[in-house]
């Protein structure tokens, strides 16, 4: 565990707490893509169910339980408790365009051709693009509440911090994980446009608005 990874994980944790806070205090899930949240449940279940057969540390297991639990809870909030505030008509990204290529890629690129490893690869590939329905929705509406942008920023910073973590691990442990690194770079890249608007507008106190 190095500082980049710890801060990355804490940023991931913070992003979910920010999202829960936004939903609970505004009693609304307006502006949040149900499809992206559903994809995260798929990502976490596919990757973290290994907590039943792979023990790494208490920290690792506790985080896995938290991510599976909180993502399912968010789906529940969106689907049931705050259902009237969820507008599927603007959440129109076709997720089969993500699921099918990720499934094919995971059959080709994995560390061992066995179900658990294929699921692991699938979750890595799917996580890298799971934010697309959310970004697509943002693009369509052209604006977002500040709190929603804080959620997205924390989520983007999480993966961005994993990159120096991998560089650090390469030099200190000699280990390199090509699947995670490639997908991680793609994932971070998807946030670049968002980061630009976030850092130049939202953090300067302006509203998050995309140019028409």
């Amino acid at each position: 565990m190095n500082l980049f990874r710890l801060l990355g994980d804490l940023s991931h944790l913070a992003s979910i707490l920010v999202l829960l806070h936004k939903i609970q205090t505004s009693r609304s899930c307006r502006g949040i893509s149900f499809k992206t949240q559903a994809l995260y449940v798929a990502v976490f279940v596919a990757r973290y169910l290994d907590l039943f057969w792979r023990y790494i540390s208490l920290y690792n297991s506790a985080m896995k339980v938290f991510f599976i639990g909180s993502s399912c809870y968010i789906l529940y909030l969106m689907k049931y408790r705050y259902r009237p505030t969820n507008d599927p008509s603007i959440d129109t990204f076709r997720i089969e365009y993500l699921l099918v290529p990720c499934a094919i890629l995971s059959l080709i690129f994995n560390y061992n051709f066995m179900p658990t490893e294929i699921l692991w690869s699938f979750s890595i590939f799917l996580e890298s693009v799971a934010i697309l329905p959310q970004l697509f929705m943002l693009q369509r509406t052209g604006e977002a509440e500040a709190i929603t942008t804080h959620y997205l920023a924390a989520l983007g910073i999480y993966r961005a911090l994993y990159i120096p973590n991998w560089i650090y691990r390469y030099f200190t442990e000699g280990v390199i994980d090509p699947i995670a690194v490639t997908a991680g770079i793609v994932q971070t890249g998807l946030y670049l446009d968002f980061f630009y608007v976030y850092f130049t507008k939202v953090l300067q106190g302006q509203k998050f608005e995309l140019p028409a």
């Binding site: 792979r54 790494i56 690792n60 560390y111 994993y162 090509p178 995670a180």
Partner: peptide, 10 residues
Amino acid sequence: SATPEAHDEL
């Protein structure tokens, strides 16, 4: 262990 297959990252 520090191999990619160890999957020790979140």
